[in-house]
Design a protein around this nucleic acid. Structure first.
Lengths: 350, 350
DNA sequence: GGAAAATGTGGCATCGATGCCACATTCGAT
DNA sequence: ATCGAATGTGGCATCGATGCCACATTTTCC
């Protein structure tokens, strides 16, 4: 098959193999290197005849384009940086999956970096992506500095899921306020008046929006929010469980909303430990629908963020920006979330 | 901060900005480009004095290395291709997370591609990675052709999780046979003799190993395997549910093992629909522990593949190979899985 | 004290593809 | 028949970093 197959057994094949270049193809096809380039890759004149001849020659000698050379020469690249916090969290995994799908369809590649939510890692990744000369980056930002540095160096940035300060970059968000409002309203309409909100942060647009939606739903129904019911915790399941414990001990809540899928794990763990009947004794709901939520018994009422679609939108927006198809003004895209009512929410007790 | 910050607002910043090069740094520091290169990046002589001066100059003018130029010149790259089937499946997400973690620590980047289990997509991705001149690829192969093409072109390949035919490449596997054997044995020791196995494929080493382990456990305990209890299905939850339905209708099983996390969803769905008491009426177990399995009630008994660690091992092995630190002979790494007994398995009824 | 070795730096070609321009050829129009 | 436009194709420089060698300077040793 491949003319260089037999060399693959050498000790250090990666270094040893010399791959054919446009020059080689040119010789093989009896044309000039420029013509090969035009015939194979770039848009430009090349008669169907020549085009076919070059194609055949390239296939014959096993020619593969060198992206590095092309990128260097054309000062561009088809690699897109994707900077997320934690691939093991299904939210980020879905986001990345949506992004990748769209990029792949457009013949772009995804360079994926986990920053673990750490500013230092995020910054390091940004530097690397700059060095790779990526034309754009999609980031769930940890620090406002990251999008800024990228933009200052001419890289297009789309912030996904949240926004920090006024970055000036394009943003794709879930409509957190609307989603949280719908979820809270659902509980209120079931007669709940003392609803606990388990939340880890409210500085980012994500948490802020969800909290705002929670409040708005109360206001809509002429209810006052008891500030003690807003239970601040940190972003891990164990902490969320402890906070849930405290919430249940100290406040007579009839329903609990977890602000994201990680916190929901903690809340559920505590509920199971106490063997509370859901939803008879306590209604449980969560923002950010992930697969396990429909597998537990009873299945959790949630807000589905359409995370994969969120990711697709990020990629589409970024590509449009790169291809200069968008007005200069920054774009803010809000993906509508969807309330998914399942068995874990029911009428308030008493 | 950045001297080019003000240009970022221009219509097409990516194209407009000219970034400083080694030449510029050289001028700024009063040395030659070669010296800049040595001082900043490559190992080579450079007095501490000069090194510091160059570093300062680079920082001052906001110099960022161009990976494309470096890669072209040095015929190498620090991007590693990772080819997986489905990022939305927590198994692959964990695998990728482990790989990325290790790569990042070694200052490599991960180019992640989803092939959706489709040979055509996989091949396309392989071509792209060849074009990127990546020194290595980690792949959960769909086709034997993919690793082969890569290797034939001098790219190091590590197959993750499974092996197709004799690829000759390094492989990192979960010890599927041992894991399935332990899981099956656990059930046998609980008195089960009619154990259903829900499985989607047995051509790959993954399915084949798990089936082999299932059989081995029976043999160990002088039990004959009723071939009717091996329920072949396809790789999606709905199909698995239907197959489970059939299994429960037609065979009097007292326990069901799902060969992976996706099939387990289907099995659980059917069990829930029938309102079977687990484990009293039926024991349920699964290969490949993923988070939701410990959240459902009762929590599922599983085999934990240590997927993240599996990923880390893939990356470590690949990097060692790239750095030529390994004997030529191909290496097969088996990561020991771990039986995790939870509430879903109990004594056989009657 | 002088030659040899050690040390640090600069010059130059090069990696592979492509953008740009010049030019050869064909074709249509007058 | 002649000219101009249209249409392909080739030549050449270039993107930015670095490998390699030559050379200048300092240090070491007999």
């Amino acid at each position: 098959m491949n003319p260089r197959g037999q060399q693959a057994r050498s000790p250090r094949p990666a270094a040893a193999i010399r791959r054919p270049t446009v020059q080689d193809v040119a010789r093989e096809a009896g044309v000039s290197p420029s013509t090969v380039s035009r015939a194979l890759h770039t848009r430009g004149y090349a008669s169907p005849d020549v085009r076919e001849r070059v194609r055949a020659a390239a296939a014959r000698i096993g020619y593969v384009l060198d992206h590095n050379a092309r990128n260097l020469r054309s000062r561009s690249s088809t690699s897109i940086g994707v900077l997320i916090s934690d691939l093991r969290n299904p939210f980020y995994a879905d986001l990345a999956a949506g992004i990748e799908e769209e990029l792949r369809a457009a013949e772009y590649q995804m360079v994926l970096v986990n920053d673990n939510g750490e500013p230092a890692e995020e910054m390091r990744a940004a530097e690397t992506l700059l060095a790779m000369r990526v034309p754009g980056v999609i980031v769930t930002p940890v620090t406002a500095a990251c999008p800024r540095v990228l933009q200052d160096n001419g890289v297009h940035v789309v912030c996904a899921d949240r926004e920090l300060g006024r970055s000036g970059s394009d943003v794709v968000l879930s409509d957190n306020k609307a989603g949280a409002r719908a979820l809270t309203e659902h509980l209120i309409e079931l007669g709940h008046t003392r609803i606990g909100l388990l939340i880890d942060e409210t500085k980012w647009s994500t948490g802020a929006g969800r909290l705002a939606g929670f409040r708005a739903a109360h206001t809509d129904h002429d209810l006052e929010v008891d500030e003690n019911l807003i239970a601040y915790t940190s972003f891990d399941a164990d902490a969320a469980q402890r906070t849930t414990r405290r919430l249940l001990d100290e406040q007579d809540v009839t329903a609990i909303i977890s602000a994201n899928n990680v916190l929901a794990q903690g809340a559920l763990a505590e509920v199971k430990e106490r063997k509370l009947k859901v939803p008879r004794q306590l209604s449980l709901a969560a923002y950010d629908d992930v697969p396990w939520m429909s597998l537990v018994q009873p299945a959790l009422t949630t807000v589905d963020q359409h995370t994969v679609e969120l990711g697709r939108n990020c990629a589409r927006l970024l590509l449009a920006r790169i291809h200069d198809e968008l007005p200069a003004r920054r774009r803010i895209l809000r993906v509508a979330p969807q309330l998914v009512v399942r068995g874990s929410t029911g009428p308030a007790p008493r």
